[in-house]
């Protein structure tokens, strides 16, 4: 059985944020919700300045604080490495959001359809051009059930009052495809694969290069590893910040 993870090569990342957009369109997330986020960082003082970028998906931790606090088993760990959310079962208590050291959980305060980019429910013009059928800006794959447990874990549902986060695009992985962010990365900085398989590209990169895990000392044991750079420090400043909550 494959056990998936991601290796992110910071030295390749140009900070373009295309992964954020590939994720948003693939997963149909509402405004302010970024299952994948890319930090743009500045360090040092002029002229000894450095700029670098750090993509941040869900870490899909092996010792996940979010799973431990979920009172209903909606957040659960899959044998294949995914830290999954069953949106059908989530009650929206937001404990996971508090427990997560990485800030990857997004609570749907509103009906996500209202904070989608186009208000599909109200626009008659769109209804007209789409033959009277108001198709939402949505990926139908997200509504299906995935994994051996056959649960609603693909970031679908779009329900008010539930928590959502990066799913590692389980609906794509199920079909043999990389998660949307990794599949799209123009400079191939995101490597998704079976970290238990020494032959996988991700394993090999991790084997060849010394890496780090973000906030390693927290002990959550992330399945996302970084190579080609260093972790942010207290001297690292975020620039070109995107407002991630509305």
């Amino acid at each position: 059985m494959a056990k998936y993870g991601m290796v992110i090569d910071i030295s390749r990342c140009t900070g373009c944020r295309a992964c954020m957009e590939a994720c948003k369109v693939e997963n149909n997330t509402p405004q302010g919700s970024f299952f994948m986020y890319v930090f743009r960082f500045e360090e040092g003082e002029y002229p000894n300045t450095r700029i670098w970028f750090m993509p941040r998906p869900c870490m899909h931790c092996d010792n996940p604080p979010c799973v431990k606090v979920c009172p209903v088993g909606a957040r659960y760990k899959m044998a294949e490495g995914f830290t999954a959310t069953d949106w059908d079962r989530c009650i929206g208590c937001r404990y996971c959001e508090v427990a997560c050291p990485y800030g990857v959980n997004y609570f749907n305060w509103r009906n996500p359809a209202e904070s989608h980019y186009l208000n599909w429910e109200d626009d008659r013009e769109i209804e007209l051009i789409l033959d009277g059928e108001v198709l939402p800006y949505a990926n139908p794959d997200l509504e299906l059930e995935y994994g051996p447990e056959m649960r609603h874990n693909a970031g679908g549902g779009r329900l008010k009052g539930v928590v959502e986060k990066c799913t590692f695009c389980i609906h794509r992985v199920e079909n043999g495809l990389d998660p949307a962010c990794a599949a799209n990365c123009p400079t191939n900085a995101l490597h998704f694969g079976d970290l238990e398989d020494p032959e996988s590209e991700a394993s090999q990169i991790l084997h060849e290069q010394s890496g780090f895990q973000y906030l390693e000392d927290v002990g959550a044991e992330p399945r996302v590893h970084y190579v080609g750079g260093h972790p942010p420090t207290t001297e690292t400043r975020e620039i070109e910040i995107v407002n991630v909550r509305v």
């Binding site: 494959a2 139908p140 059930e145 995935y146 051996p148 609906h171 992985v173 199920e174 079909n175 079976d194």
Partner: peptide, 19 residues
């Protein structure tokens, strides 16, 4: 043109026949 290279999970998703 889309070729998947990952091993798929154990069970497949239930797809909609009308799509």
């Amino acid at each position: 043109l889309l070729s998947g290279g990952l091993k798929t999970l154990i069970a497949g998703a239930k797809g909609s026949l009308t799509t």
